[in-house]
């Protein structure tokens, strides 16, 4: 048996206990490898989706994560890179239907995790910032820090739910969707106009075009606050003409 054949046989047995155990000794012990792979992935999900885990409790989370892991092949060796579609899985996971906003919380957990582990990057310095003021600001395109994440829930007041979860006032679940701006330092609710502005900027539109979109979407949108927040929180890497 060649090396490639042996690895293929090993892999087949990992995926299917009924597969041919050609050349493998103690093949019944494959169950330990299956268990290790599953447990390693479940533990990683527990670390990433901490708000989801707290909302549903450890037993429920483990059972849900186990079903997700079994249904979703791992596509990376780095356990921290897995879970991008866990929110989608939760949205259609029938036992979680009692907590209909759980998938939205998972989306936030994932975005916060991406922000936490995003690559480091040098943000725009004060001198460069001062030079910008003189330039034609409307014609610039902004390049953002990789930790900037935008999350929108169309149905659930996700910012109020997170605040409630953190010990704040009870959220009114009927008030509809909300948007969040997430960075390494913090998360905060943003309006629909601010959301439209940031979406447009992230997509590479000029500041002028993005402002137009924001005001179309929300005529009295607070533009100044969100623009100054981007710069004061060090979320802008470059402004390009």
């Amino acid at each position: 048996m060649s090396y490639a054949q042996a690895i293929s046989a090993f892999s087949a047995l990992l995926l299917d206990p009924q597969a041919q155990s050609a050349g493998l000794l103690h093949a019944a012990r494959m169950r330990h490898y299956r268990a290790n792979c599953r447990l390693n992935r479940i533990a990683a999900l527990q670390g990433v989706f901490s708000n989801v885990a707290q909302l549903v409790g450890e037993d429920f989370f483990t059972a849900m994560a186990r079903e997700y892991v079994d249904a979703t092949p791992a596509h990376a060796a780095d356990l921290h890179a897995m879970g991008a579609d866990f929110a989608d899985f939760i949205a259609q996971f029938a036992p979680a239907a009692e907590l209909p906003y759980l998938a939205a919380v998972a989306q936030v957990d994932w975005a916060r995790w991406r922000a936490y582990l995003a690559p480091d990057a040098t943000t725009l310095g004060l001198t460069e910032l001062a030079a910008l003021a003189a330039a034609d600001f409307a014609s610039l395109q902004l390049v953002f820090h990789p930790s900037l994440q935008l999350v929108q829930s169309l149905h659930w007041p996700i910012a109020d739910i997170l605040a409630m979860h953190a010990g704040g006032p009870s959220a009114d679940l009927r008030r509809g969707g909300q948007q969040l701006l997430i960075s390494r330092r913090q998360w905060q609710a943003i309006s629909t106009g601010q959301w439209a502005l940031l979406q447009a900027l992230v997509a590479g539109e000029t500041v002028g075009d993005a402002l137009e979109r924001a005001l179309q979407c929300e005529p009295d949108c607070d533009i100044q606050t969100i623009i100054s927040l981007l710069f004061t929180q060090g979320l802008v890497l470059r402004a390009e003409p």
């Binding site: 090396y3 042996a6 690895i7 090993f10 892999s11 290790n36 390693n40 092949p73 060796a77 356990l79």
Partner: peptide, 17 residues
Amino acid sequence: HAERYFNDLLPVPRVEG
């Protein structure tokens, strides 16, 4: 194997190659 990852340290078969 075949673009699928197994998140564990699997021993290498010490066979030809």
